[in-house]
Amino acid sequence: MKDINELKDIATQVRRDVLRMVYGAQSGHPGGPLGCADLLTALYFRVMKHNPGDFSMDGAGEDLFFLSNGHLSAGWYSVLAHSGYFDKKELATFRLIDSRLQGHPATEEGLPGVRVASGSLGQGLSVACGAALAKRLNKDPQIVYCLMGDGEQQEGQIWEAAMFAAGREIDNIIGIVDYNGQQIDGAVNDVMPLGDLHAKYKAFGWEVLEMDGNKMEEVINTLEKARSLCGNKKPVVILMRTEMGYGVDFMMGTHEWHGKPPNDEQFEKAIANFKETLGDY
């Protein structure tokens, strides 16, 4: 089991990868995955039971992860590669022609680790509910995780799925909302306020936890607590406060870096924040 310091080192490498991938492609979304690197690392290197070397679509006997906010692909690909789903050299092909690493995750090219396409927002929680129901039918005790964005909570389908999960007592699912307060057009509170998201999920019949998604210890503890709440006829959601662009001072506290690549100078400044801990691709 990886200890906290090892996990922090992995998250640092993931952030480094994210910057290099988006810079290399001169295209992509750096802000979100910089904010979620700690969560993705915690899930794939500590919390989830999974078989990176022997990927199967059904993931029988494994925990499953769905990335509903598919634009965080750079971070997810990095974590998948370092976990052993595919060679990290392939990260260099991100968003380029003939790559398996599509701008938004896809299954057509058979990239191990990806089970459904995502990018058009609002769909992942429904898919995760279906996968969780399949586990129930298959008498598979493992858990299904689904990461969503906060802006994504504006999609109506999220609330269809939220109602469904509670109504059908799906208690082997853990939803995680990346609550960084930013979306493409600006602050979520300006674009379309979410109101009291905690109270909303609670009213829909979910167990609701909150955590600081950029503190590794807290992430691990909260994920473990969420897991302990499974099996009680209620779905569980974690509202995860993060900083979009975490670790790069000029990318934090703004929506500016949701979906644009850094130029040469910006890249040099940004990459200096993250040392090479696992080896670059």
Partner: peptide, 14 residues
Amino acid sequence: ANMMGVAAGLSIGG
């Protein structure tokens, strides 16, 4: 919309 997503998820589980 949810039904289509749930169906996709069920198919992932075989």
